[in-house]
Design a protein around this nucleic acid. Structure first.
Lengths: 335, 335
DNA sequence: GTATGTTGCTCCATCGATTGTGCAAACTGT
DNA sequence: ACAGTTTGCACAATCGATGGAGCAACATAC
């Protein structure tokens, strides 16, 4: 245990008076299949521990064309959802005896492909992809090298994907918003959908869910109620201000389609008298723990990161059809 | 580019009509030193690109006893400071052409040592450690294998460490809190320090900083003003409630010594009339973007994650004395 | 006593890249 | 024209673990 020089199976073999291949098979657990006596195995394990030996993964990986490394690429670390995923991913990978490698690529396509290539150079055993800028390019790369991969939170045509059931989540969130609207609400009693990009899969499903619930309750959902203004908080803030001016006050309900939009709303509300904003019913399709400490109720959708990751791993163990798309229900956190 | 089978230097060599060693030295950039003609190098690079070749890092690593992998272990992903660090770490590592491996160990000593061992099995080139439960054990492990390592945000005796200047940060934060106190403050006009563990390095330095500034301004700092009740938000909430009852209202100023304490404060304030809490001057020794959206000003200390990481990398390039401890000034974000 | 089977290993080629060494061919100086 | 130098590359051992093949010792069968 005190040596600085790295131990190898040859050192252990010499110390145990046996051959390197015996040590090897003891260390990798195949010794029963290779008819090594249990006594021998125990003795070798003891020596290995005593001498502070640990397998050289590079050599093993070179030989077996595997590495025990498993990759996850995501846009950034500094985001609650992504760090939730990182957490679940780490736990699951370690539970399987693999080594998680998580890399943030800043939503930059070039960085994405470079990262995928780099990871492949390490012979990673599989790759999970979250929120990639160019999913199909990544899928192509993986496919061309035979690298098993699964997309999370973002469906990629032709590749197994695990995503949140956005439509169902949006319906439940919308319902919660409607139910929280106080009956004494005067003026414009409508609910507005704010933020997101209607061309993207997630947003479009959410809009469908929102519209369905609104129509069920109010009979109709005007086009003005859906303001898919993107993810930029500054633009969202402008839209909120416009809405406020147009309505002469806050609307009855607001569906914030991302954490950024929610932040914009908070920034706007800082200057609004408390008596006013305490009457707006707010829902956010994203989770932020600080939402619970606000002076008005906020319903939030939290993605089931644990489930998403688990299902993604299951896709590795039981490879599904290439176009398999699995949906996981979101968690609705009522205020 | 279309082949599923992995390319090797032998394939490229055959295609280029040259030897594997030539290809190797072209791929790893040593070709000038080995007097390879520039034409040859270019031709080989072209072929490599064309055939979709990428170096097998396992083979390279086996040969060179390096890996290009660089590790970071931290308690959890789901925390602003840690994810900030992950972000900076990733950028810096990639800039150096290394592959960042970030692993969360849940503040569990066993998980920590197992992770360090696992990472060493991959011959990682260096290891950064943040917020470990047992720093000296980790340092011992690394030392025994000759693995370069640097501690961040936590000094470890005998190992190079980069930490935030807690005393200076606490002084500046305290000063900001004092300056924000409105002159019309009636009743108990004192500032209170809440949370943390006085036995730990970081907290003790912060308490020193706090006390210094308080004494400079008020001449004295009573022992009741320092409530180092740990990091549990529930306990902190109890202490806040006690303080509130004892003073018959909110104090003039509050120094929240961690994000958990700050959350406890927010939870408490949800039930306090707005007129009351708008007069308390709050500082938090931690950063949380949502602090900016509150209806009262909060000064925050944000650790310079970028700097911490940069300095840590510099320690790798220019190994300092084993007990080197470098301090980085914190960033004070005024409300 | 010979044939056949089982036990418990060992031998050695191999994975792909690296690098010290060797060696022709081209060039330089005289 | 011949020794000496430089240029441009090829050879082959090596890193540490793996696993198919082989082999001696012993047991069992007939």
């Amino acid at each position: 245990m005190k040596q600085t020089a790295k131990r190898t199976i040859y050192d252990i073999a010499k110390a145990a008076g046996s051959s390197p291949s015996t040590v090897s098979s003891v260390m990798n657990g195949t010794w029963k299949g290779r008819r090594i006596k249990e006594d021998t195995a125990k003795r070798i394990l003891g020596l290995a521990d005593e001498l502070g030996y640990s397998v050289n993964q590079q050599a093993r990986g070179l030989r077996t064309a595997q590495s025990g490394l498993i990759g996850l690429i995501l846009p950034e670390h500094n985001n609650r959802f992504f760090s939730d995923l990182s957490q679940s991913f780490t736990l699951e990978a370690r539970k399987r005896g693999q080594c998680p490698v998580i890399i943030a690529t800043q939503r930059d396509p070039e960085s994405e492909t470079r990262t995928v290539r780099d990871l492949m150079a390490y012979s990673i055993d599989a790759l999970f992809v979250v929120g990639a800028a160019e999913p199909s390019e990544i899928s192509r790369l993986c496919r061309s090298s035979g690298l098993p991969h699964v997309f999370i939170d973002q469906p990629c045509p032709g590749a197994p994907s695990v995503i949140t059931d956005n439509e169902d989540g949006a319906r439940r969130l919308t319902r919660a918003i409607i139910e929280t609207i106080k009956p004494d609400q005067q003026g414009d009693a409508k609910v507005y959908f704010l933020g997101g990009d209607a061309r993207l899969h997630a947003s479009s499903r959410r809009i469908v869910g929102f519209r369905t619930e609104i129509e069920r309750h109010y009979g109709t959902c005007g086009p003005d109620q859906i303001i898919a203004c993107g993810y930029d908080p500054d633009i969202a803030l402008m839209r909120i201000r416009e809405l406020y001016d147009r309505l002469g006050g806050l609307p009855a309900g607001l569906f914030a389609n991302s954490i950024n939009v929610f932040e914009a709303l908070l920034r706007f509300l800082v200057d609004v008298p408390e008596t006013e904003f305490q009457h707006v019913s707010v829902g956010c399709f994203d989770y932020e723990p600080y939402g619970e400490f606000l002076r008005f109720p906020v319903h939030m959708i939290r993605q089931r990161h644990r489930q998403l990751v688990r299902k993604a791993f299951e896709f590795l163990d039981q490879p599904p059809a290439d176009n398999a798309l699995l949906m996981v229900a979101a968690e609705l956190r009522l205020a």
